[in-house]
């Protein structure tokens, strides 16, 4: 009896849970056919056992899948640098400020809530804004946004225009032309072209092959084929927790490019800056 038991438990294990249902229905059929027979020694109800084990496995599987689906939904990629500190997102930090818990000055990076137009006042000295990080991922900016309807720019663009696009919920992909070859550039461009709320431009001197910016967050990678690039685009474009200006659009901005963007240490002369500004202003209405 003992050896028989072992054998059958082995076969049951080998057969796996798939056979559980079959086993159950077979024993059911047999029972009904032999309806009148009297069974003296009750064998182990393997069919029943396997059926319930099978049900248990399936149920646990469904629970696990459900838990995974909810957990996995909309997660940012791992390599993201978040400039909101402990607050995590624009939504949360803004709520804390509105509730009077903190002021912008308490933040490590106050620029995540600075959204003024620097060229709107009479002071023209700050009309080419400079930023704490490079490429910038938020802060005061210019009144015109860079058109970001999946636009791929061949030349550098003005930081202040691109930051305004970030405020509109766009993701800005920048690459270092010295670290990325032509094939890789067109590979990156294929991710951006035609994708609303994204834009791409070269950023000489950024020192890393690819950098992705959304308002208050940044991802940098030396691998232009890094799967986190797609994850960043999927997660941060128009992300509801990270919208510095809800409902704004990417059409109707400027499409100006410049070879004299303030990349890192190099600073523009006042002449260059005012020439650039003039150029941008004159092209703004007609694009």
């Amino acid at each position: 009896m003992a050896s028989k038991k072992q054998n059958s438990s082995k076969t049951a294990k080998n057969a796996g849970s798939k056979s559980a249902k079959n086993a159950g229905s077979k024993s059911g059929k047999n029972a009904s056919r032999k309806g009148r027979g009297v069974q003296v020694a009750q064998p182990k109800p393997w069919g029943l056992i396997l059926t319930f084990s099978g049900v248990g496995v399936v149920a646990l599987g469904l629970i696990a899948v459900a838990a995974f689906v909810v957990w996995d939904r909309s997660k940012p990629p791992e390599g993201v640098t978040n400039f909101y500190g402990d607050y995590g997102s624009y939504e949360v930090v803004k709520a804390a400020i509105d509730d009077g818990e903190i002021t912008a000055e308490d933040l490590d990076h106050p620029w995540v809530v600075q959204q003024e137009h620097l060229d709107a006042d009479e002071d023209t000295s700050n009309d080419q804004p400079t930023y704490e990080i490079s490429p910038p991922a938020g802060g005061n900016h210019l009144s015109q946004w860079q058109t970001c309807t999946g636009a791929v720019y061949a030349d550098p663009i003005a930081d202040g225009n691109a930051v305004h696009s970030l405020e509109h919920g766009a993701v800005w992909l920048t690459y270092d032309p010295e670290l990325v070859d032509e094939g890789q550039v067109s590979e990156l461009a294929s991710k951006i072209e035609g994708r609303d709320f994204s834009l791409m431009s070269p950023y000489p001197g950024q020192g890393v092959a690819v950098s992705l910016q959304a308002w208050g967050v940044q991802l940098q990678t030396d691998d232009p084929a890094d799967p986190e690039i797609d994850q960043f685009l999927n997660y941060y474009i128009q992300n509801g927790d990270n919208l510095a200006e809800m409902g704004a659009s990417c059409t109707g901005g400027v499409s100006t490019t410049t070879a004299t963007t303030s990349g890192g240490e190099t600073e523009m002369t006042e002449e260059e800056a005012s020439a650039l500004l003039e150029q941008m202003e004159s092209s703004a209405p007609a694009e």
């Binding site: 182990k44 109800p45 029943l48 056992i49 319930f52 049900v55 248990g56 399936v58 149920a59 646990l60 469904l62 629970i63 899948v65 459900a66 838990a67 689906v69 909810v70």
Partner: peptide, 26 residues
């Protein structure tokens, strides 16, 4: 345990209920 179908049925029912909630939740 296997000799008590009622216990098996109860366990299976709880698990199925859990699965039902999980599906509904998702």
């Amino acid at each position: 345990l296997w000799q008590r179908p009622a216990v098996l049925i109860a366990i299976a029912a709880v698990l199925m209920l859990g699965a039902g909630f999980a599906i509904g939740w998702v």
